[in-house]
């Protein structure tokens, strides 16, 4: 079969047999999982990172620190596929909870990226001069207010490229959610491929979509970085 025929077949299924609906749905799910995952991850990661930079001479911070260490060790120590399977087929049914696979995927992606982002965020927080914290405390702000208003904004500025990287990883990693039956880009193109017994064009198109997505994200990160670095420039 020549190349043109393959493309014809692909377009036929994509448009005439409503394949594009699946693709749009897959793209939507892929983005949903990655974005929701990133947001949950940033919240969890920031909390863990804050716990990890707390002064350690009291009991409560030590206990929290222990819990966070365990959390990070668990989510970094197992593959995401395993986490998906464990949550969807083992942990949630044991607790008697039934959730749609898309929701589970979002949650697991958030929990997983939280572990990674906590380490990124910790290095970001530690890259901010300790004087910033002292400056905030000296005018009567509490530890958490200073963290929220002064230290974390500067930390985020420093780690933005790495956070962008994490988002890219998340986008690409979504291709494993079909393990628990969530419909992402891979599922959509796999459907087209198996209907036409022809995988070359669908898979190449899928690769192209991922590349375009990643390029857009890199661009957005660059724009954000530029606007956040306002305070560094002399004007």
């Amino acid at each position: 079969m020549n190349f043109e025929a393959k493309i014809d077949k692909f377009i036929n299924i994509l448009i005439e047999q409503n394949g594009y609906v699946k693709v749009v749905e897959g793209l939507e799910n892929t983005l949903k999982i990655a974005i929701v995952g990133l947001v949950i991850g940033i919240v969890i990661g920031t909390l863990i990172a804050t716990v990890r930079v707390l002064p350690k001479y009291k009991v409560l911070p030590r206990i929290l620190n222990g819990i966070c260490s365990f959390y990070v060790a668990f989510f970094r120590g197992t593959p995401m596929v395993v986490q998906l399977l464990v949550f969807y087929y083992v942990a949630l049914p044991l607790m008697g909870i039934r959730l749609p696979s898309l929701t589970v995927a979002m949650a697991v992606f958030g929990l997983n990226s939280g572990a990674y982002i906590s380490e990124i965020m910790r290095s970001g927080i530690q890259s901010v001069d300790y004087g910033q914290m002292e400056g905030g405390r000296s005018v009567g702000l509490s530890f958490s207010t200073t963290m929220l208003k002064i230290v974390i904004p500067q930390a985020v500025k420093n780690i933005l490229p790495t956070l962008g990287n994490e988002f890219i990883v998340l986008i690409k990693e979504t291709s494993i959610v079909s393990f628990i039956g969530a419909a992402d880009l891979y599922v959509a193109f796999n459907y087209i491929g198996s209907n036409s017994y022809e995988f070359m064009v669908p898979y190449l198109t899928m690769a192209l979509i991922y590349i375009v997505l990643v390029c857009i994200i890199s661009l957005l990160v660059k724009i954000m970085e530029r606007s956040l670095h306002k305070s560094d420039r002399r004007n």
Binding site: G131, E134, G135, G136, S138, G140, Q154
Partner: peptide, 16 residues
């Protein structure tokens, strides 16, 4: 601390 001001050697102004 609201009633006790402090000025540092390295200023410690909020950069952001």
């Amino acid at each position: 601390r609201r009633r006790i001001g402090m000025v540092f050697q390295h200023f410690n102004l909020f950069n952001n």
